[in-house]
Amino acid sequence: MADVVVRQHGVPVLVCDAEGARIATVQDALDHLVGVAFQGADVVAVPTVRFDDGFFDLRTGLAGAVMQKFVDYRLRLVVVGDLSPHLRSGTALRDMVREANRGRHVWFVPDLAALAARLAPEPAG
Rank of each mutant, 00 (worst) to 15 (best):
G35E: 01
M1K: 07
Q8N: 02
P85I: 10
H9G: 04
V11M: 07
V49N: 10
V6I: 10
G125H: 05
A21Y: 02
V106K: 03
D95N: 08
L14W: 01
L119S: 04
V66P: 03
A120N: 05
G90M: 05
A24P: 00
R59D: 15
Y73S: 14
V43K: 06
H105E: 13
D52Y: 11
G20A: 09
F55V: 08
F55D: 05
A21E: 08
A120W: 00
P123S: 04
F108I: 10
A92T: 11
V46N: 12
A24S: 09
V13N: 05
A37E: 02
V66F: 06
A18T: 05
V11K: 06
N101F: 08
V15S: 01
R59G: 15
A92F: 02
M96C: 09
P85K: 06
V34E: 06
A37N: 02
R76I: 10
A2T: 10
P85R: 05
A29P: 05
G61F: 08
G35I: 00
G103I: 13
A100G: 04
A18S: 11
L33K: 02
D111P: 08
L30C: 06
V80R: 12
N101R: 11
L62Y: 05
M1Y: 00
D111E: 07
R59P: 05
G10P: 07
R94N: 13
G125V: 09
T91S: 15
V5G: 02
L83Q: 05
V4H: 14
A41Q: 12
T48E: 09
Q39E: 10
P110Y: 07
S89R: 14
V44E: 05
G61Q: 06
A116C: 03
V5H: 01
Y73Q: 15
D53K: 14
V109Q: 04
D57H: 10
V44S: 07
Y73I: 10
R7I: 00
A120S: 12
V49W: 03
V78T: 14
I23R: 01
V34D: 07
R22M: 02
R102Q: 15
G81D: 09
D82P: 04
A120T: 10
D52P: 01
L119C: 04
E19F: 00
A63F: 03
E99Q: 11
D53C: 10
G81L: 09
V44I: 14
E19H: 01
V4T: 15
V79E: 04
D42H: 10
D82H: 06
V43G: 05
A41L: 06
G20P: 05
L14D: 02
A63H: 06
A117C: 05
V11P: 03
Q68G: 14
T91M: 12
M96R: 06
L14Y: 00
A100M: 08
R88L: 03
L112Q: 13
A114M: 12
H9F: 09
G20D: 00
V4I: 14
R7W: 00
A100K: 03
P47R: 08
L30S: 04
F38P: 00
V78K: 12
A37M: 01
H86P: 00
V66L: 06
P85N: 09
R76T: 15
